[in-house]
Nucleic acid binder design. Sequence first.
DNA 1: CATATTTCAGCTACACTGACATCG
DNA 2: CCGATGTCAGTGCAGCTGAAATAT
Lengths: 156, 156
Amino acid sequence: MSDDAPPEALRSLASWLLTQTAAHAHRLVTDGLGAIAARGHHYRLLASLDEFGPASQATLARHSGVHTSDVVAALNELSAAGHTARLPDPADRRRNIITLTPSGRTHLTAMRERLQAVQEDLLRPLDATERATLTTLLTRLLAHHENRERESRHAG
Amino acid sequence: MSDDAPPEALRSLASWLLTQTAAHAHRLVTDGLGAIAARGHHYRLLASLDEFGPASQATLARHSGVHTSDVVAALNELSAAGHTARLPDPADRRRNIITLTPSGRTHLTAMRERLQAVQEDLLRPLDATERATLTTLLTRLLAHHENRERESRHAG
DNA sequence: CATATTTCAGCTACACTGACATCG
DNA sequence: CCGATGTCAGTGCAGCTGAAATAT
């Protein structure tokens, strides 16, 4: 459904280039993870647990950037599959402490491998220097907009 | 919900950087267009009509990259607002010929202005050279993945 | 017959909102 | 009472699928 050349009015917009390439990236990630019955949120949560250790769901949401309500749903799936465990926090009975199980660790490794392949696929036309440049530019944009969000939350 | 620093396992993934920055870009675009009761699809369709002239819905879908089924919905909205007109094609009675009305042209101009402001907002931390670099890299990625899609459609 | 166009109904993923009960 | 937490229900947009009706 997008055979012809898009109008210049679109191709000249950075926002359009970003969302379009992101759509392709998202497709590749979804397909790559889907092949091992995983999804984007799963990786974000398991990677956060792996890097920061066991945490409450709220902390996990802050680390991974996944919305708390989506954390609930994703952890339902991950726990049902035995990749995470929900333990009540004895010190604060509102909280669950989420831990990575051995099975979750294995699953995380598999996801990492899939995602590495996806990056290669995604960035194929760029050489190493260009990939580094792209990463730097995107990282700067992201940092800028994350700060703006933080500030507006602090102000609001 | 994304206050803390995301794990390195995410920050090092180009796919993650892309989808995150795209999410911010999408928010800015949605907000910017929302202020004048417009949406992304509207701009893509009106810009295509402006650049390529009147077209059938199917052609419009191919030009704009908007799915045919979504074209139907967006044109319902645009036509209800008087920004486009659907005329039956006398030469092919399956088709509607879509045209930009004067009101649609005015609306398109307003969207263009909003979107220019959004680009400025989006790219603020980058200087002119860096913006050009980003545009080039993204354009190359996009071209690559569009070709892959075309080929797999041709093969399949 | 196959193909193209328009339309409708619905699905998935992600980001997000609002409400609620629970607990500190 | 205020605030944080976990849960559930539901919204909106984008991208997409499938099917039907109509016409070429």
